[in-house]
Design a protein around this nucleic acid. Structure first.
Length: 280
RNA sequence: UCGGAGCACCA
């Protein structure tokens, strides 16, 4: 059983849905009864490939064959529904979970918060967050970032900033995800000063950021007219030995052009050529 | 053996 579960999971991770399914069929032929882990692996695998209906299909098979539904499976089902925008069904899974006396944990709560963020219901997301705390579960950095996402999508940037204060009080680390949510919030509030301060705090860990994140940062700085800071960050990227690719140059050039800084524009174009990157 | 958020340009 364990070997089957692991193998099905591996096929799912590399996108071999048919092979995973074949294994599932073969285990049934051999009278090996799939357990809740088997079903959860199948469901999460389906979700990764956006096969949500198939995921729900496995949930049905699971309940039909009386396999007990674990909290992991409830959580996966909540995601499967919410990612399709079926929030009512996600809510009903949560209700069933409670009815089955299955204790939601921090991951379940985070998925619910995320579900409401997809559904653009920040009030509901916040209510889940409070429910979680009422159940003596301490928010962590992931649940906070999920709630921040919901706040930003609902145009509640001030709430993002107060959540940030809460996190500082609790000594929660400020992850890069949190940072980008806060930057988005500052952007909505046109509060560049707070954003720039935050970027300064992140500076020592620039080398850990992905290229996408660095480009996002440059994009934000440019958009807010902080050309000097943008160039400074860029030079730090170069100095830290990061691979600078064409999209990074595009962001720089676009912003320099928009701000009318054509001298710098030409200079950057020159750097780009020097490093052998073709302009698109 | 299984479950959670976030990541730019372009499209």
């Amino acid at each position: 059983l364990v070997a089957y579960n692991a193998a099905i999971g591996s096929y799912m991770n590399v996108g071999e849905y048919d092979k995973a399914l074949a294994l599932y069929e073969s285990m049934k032929e051999k009278k090996i009864k799939p357990d809740s882990i088997t079903y959860n692996v199948l469901m999460t695998g389906c979700c990764k490939m956006s096969k949500y209906d198939e995921a729900i299909g496995f949930l049905d098979e699971m309940t039909n064959s009386k396999v007990p539904v674990s909290k992991e499976v409830y959580s996966s089902a909540i995601s499967a529904y919410s990612k399709q925008g079926r929030i009512a069904e996600a809510e009903s899974m949560y209700a069933q979970m409670k009815a089955a006396r299955c204790q939601p944990d921090i991951i379940t709560y985070t998925k619910l918060i995320h579900a409401y963020s997809i559904a653009e219901k920040w009030e509901k997301a916040y209510a889940i967050f409070e429910e979680m705390m009422a159940n003596d579960i301490e928010p962590d950095v992931v649940s906070c970032s999920a709630l921040m996402r919901a706040f930003n999508k609902g145009n509640q940037p001030a709430k993002v900033l107060s959540l940030l204060e809460y996190m500082k009080d609790k000594n929660l680390p400020i992850s890069d995800a949190i940072c980008f949510e806060v930057i988005s919030a500052c952007s909505l509030l046109r509060d560049w000063r707070t954003a720039i301060e935050l970027i300064k705090v992140m500076e020592p860990s620039f080398h850990k950021l992905s290229t996408g994140q660095l480009n996002h940062l440059l994009h934000f700085l440019g958009k807010s007219g902080k050309m000097e800071t943008m160039m400074k960050v860029f030079l730090k990227m170069v100095a830290s030995g990061a691979e600078i690719s064409q999209p990074t140059y595009s962001v720089l050039l676009k912003n320099l052009l928009a701000s009318g800084n054509w001298r710098k524009y030409i200079e950057v174009l020159q750097w780009m050529e020097d490093t052998g990157i073709q302009p698109s």
